[in-house]
Design a protein around this nucleic acid. Structure first.
Lengths: 172, 172
DNA sequence: GACAATAGTGAGTGGAGACTCATTTTGGTA
DNA sequence: TACCAAAATGAGTCTCCACTCACTATTGTC
């Protein structure tokens, strides 16, 4: 790949991350091009459809989440994701399964595996009750991220809401 | 109001309820007109903007929810709303605060009051622990409805997810 | 430095959807 | 029945946005 192409590809990805974080998947390709300092045709040269661009961003994002999951316990990861959700609409669109998820089954699978490890670890230390399964943990994670974004929760509400869920996980 | 106007207004509201239940607020005004068996201009005569139409539907919907809240306990209402969410995207858009909520503060207030009554009643019978407040109950309700819709939960996942939340509400 | 091959450009296309308005139709009244 | 105000109509406007393509510019190689 030519040097300018590589440079522009990176710029587009950065711009897209910012735009989609702000507007979710409704952010326009034109805005991405503008922020990347590139003509719209260039965006489409690198990513033939808007979905391709979204998929690329989400793949990157999922990778980050998996990495971050390795550095926290289940409860801290939960709180971290909810906090991020408010700032990054992309996270929510991702968890909401906005069509793109279907195209990234392995990447989503990796996140599920990472959360699965956190869950097992939490079960081992007694922080989570035995009957709680991975599916409902993922479901709660996705739900609360969406709720936090759309509801515009403040820090206190976020803490109180998570407290209920954590209590539920501890004793099911 | 003339008889035909009244009849058409009712038809439009019914059509809008169906369309928005299916597609959420992204449902098109044209589709509403088609299902109502009416020209698009008629829809705009009755509801000057799409937002007006959405607001009318949501007001109606909120009224129904308040009424239903009076016939159940907190947990049953929770489960009922989650079940509805999957079928009625409007419910989710409503709880997600899709811009329209801002225009219906009293109607939303009534729902909150109704849930508040259920919460107090649940606290009185010991079904819910004292430190749980109304804000986090509303936040959880909105979150889980969104999660259920977007995640396409089956009955089992829905039950298991709600079980965690109910456990958390019982002992916070 | 010449020359492909690769990449970038941005005006233009097509389609979708909210909203308008000149014209026609209808319902109620005298 | 005749009339007219209220209502309905639907083709048309406007805006937004994903996507295209004929043309120009840049890069890397010999």
């Amino acid at each position: 790949m030519r040097a300018d192409a590589q440079r522009n590809r990176a710029r587009i990805l950065d711009a897209a991350e910012a735009v989609f974080a702000e507007f979710g998947s409704r952010g326009s390709t034109e805005e991405v091009a503008r922020r990347a300092g590139v003509a719209i045709g260039t965006v489409f040269r690198h990513f033939p459809t808007k979905d391709d661009l979204l998929a690329a961003i989400m793949k990157r994002l999922l990778g980050q989440l998996v990495e971050e999951a390795g550095q926290r316990d289940l409860f801290a990861f939960f709180a971290h994701m909810v906090a991020q959700a408010a700032a990054k609409k992309t996270v929510v669109d991702l968890l909401a399964g906005s069509g793109v998820t279907i195209r990234l089954p392995e990447a989503v699978g990796h996140l599920e595996e990472a959360v699965g490890r956190l869950l097992e670890q939490a079960r081992a230390t007694g922080a989570v009750a035995a009957p709680v399964g991975l599916p409902e943990v993922m479901a709660l994670l996705a739900s609360v991220c969406q709720g936090a974004l759309h509801g515009g929760w403040d820090e206190q509400l976020q803490a109180r809401t998570l407290a209920v869920i954590f209590a539920g996980l501890q004793r099911d």
